[in-house]
Design a protein around this nucleic acid. Structure first.
Lengths: 213, 213
DNA sequence: CGATTGGGATACCGATCAGTATCTTGCATA
DNA sequence: TATGCAAGATACTGATCGGTATCCCAATCG
């Protein structure tokens, strides 16, 4: 492929993304607080000045990295209304495990949350919380209707459910960060499935046997 | 009460504990990293020199605080073998909520865990993890036997169960730190109860209903 | 081809902080 | 009462880091 002559704008964008990548990697490896602008610049063979040419402050850089990497956990499994709740949760649990194996994204997110938490930065906390919840809220929206339609009786109302899913994900991610060996996929999956409550609660006549697979 | 003449040793111990208390409070409020030795000293009307008279380094001070305040969550409810598992978990869940209201202890512990995580300090991570698990291991030890005796069928084996309890506690604590309003005690209690895998919250042990499996 | 411009380097500032060395002072003991 | 010692104050060092001002140089453009 013929390398077109590189314009200034292209060059600038290249370094900008290089900075973002390097920053993200260092944030994950060493934590946000412990990562200096200098370290980021040095990693890609530049100096501090270059970074400040693309980002006005460390704060802005952090926000840009967050923006770029904070793709929330994939909640697609949760939205598959064709499956019973327990199975959707199981899929979601496995998705979380997979994400943990791929590591960086979730870990980065956790790092951000830690930084936010450690700094007691209310504003950030709200942004992150909202970012987390955007995806989960979709789920909450269909949650009640679908459960009614399916005659499933989860132990939580929608808002509680979203909160508890959040609790579960946070717990798993943190536990993984501190002691990966203690988490095995089947257990995590079961953990999420339990949030559905007991499908065979004898309050409803059921036609399908949900315990199948 | 007769004021016994205060010896030097007593005085020294007093300031030492004062330092520990102040440090703990500031760690919780502002985070460990963001708390300077000076700030700790100033808070109790002393100066940095005084702190270094009692603790060789900030690292040692942090360790001492951790030592003093890392009393693990009260697992007594879990050990009440006279109750069915679900109830024990419900009690435990309420205990966690209560601890969150009282805040400092659990939050402090969380701070330490985060600090450890952020610093990628393996050694510390192991210490904390073990500290956490000491209490839970007691529970694990009686877990299997009691369940057999009660004909209860929790969805996890003992080791998994301990891990998942840990996950649940971490999740709840972190969620609380980031968004206290999203957690209400009944939901948290239900969340823990679900870990028992038995929705029917019996008030007394019953003869086991034969179940498919 | 020469002027301009902007990406990046360099050097520096000010603040913060851990840690140290040294002095002061008041209490305990002889 | 005299004195020695230790608790704590004070002042300083060295290092780090975020941020800024300024300079350099090569790519762009008239």
């Amino acid at each position: 492929m013929p390398r077109r002559p590189i314009t200034r704008a292209e060059r600038k964008l290249e370094t900008k993304t290089a900075i973002l990548d390097a920053a993200a990697r260092l944030f994950v490896r060493n934590g946000i607080e412990a990562t200096s602008i200098d370290a980021i610049a040095t990693r890609i063979g530049l100096t501090k000045g270059a970074v400040y040419g693309s980002f006005a402050s460390k704060q802005k850089l952090i926000e840009a990295v967050a923006e770029r990497y904070s793709a929330p956990a994939d909640v697609a499994p949760l939205l598959r209304a064709d499956l019973p709740l327990a199975e959707r949760l199981g899929l979601f649990g496995r998705g979380v495990c997979a994400a943990l194996q791929g590591a960086s994204r979730l870990q980065l997110l956790l790092d951000f949350e830690y930084a936010v938490y450690a700094r007691r930065n209310k504003q950030w906390a709200r942004r992150i919380r909202e970012g987390d919840n955007i995806a989960l809220r979709q789920f909450a929206a269909q949650f009640h209707a679908v459960n009614i339609a399916r005659h499933e009786r989860p132990p939580f109302v929608a808002s509680e459910f979203v909160a508890m899913l959040s609790v579960a994900v946070r717990g798993v991610v943190q536990q993984f960060a501190l002691d990966p060996a203690s988490l095995r996929e089947p257990a995590v999956e079961k953990f999420f499935v339990l949030l559905a409550g007991q499908p065979e609660h004898p309050t409803r006549p059921r036609t399908p046997r949900p315990r199948s697979r």
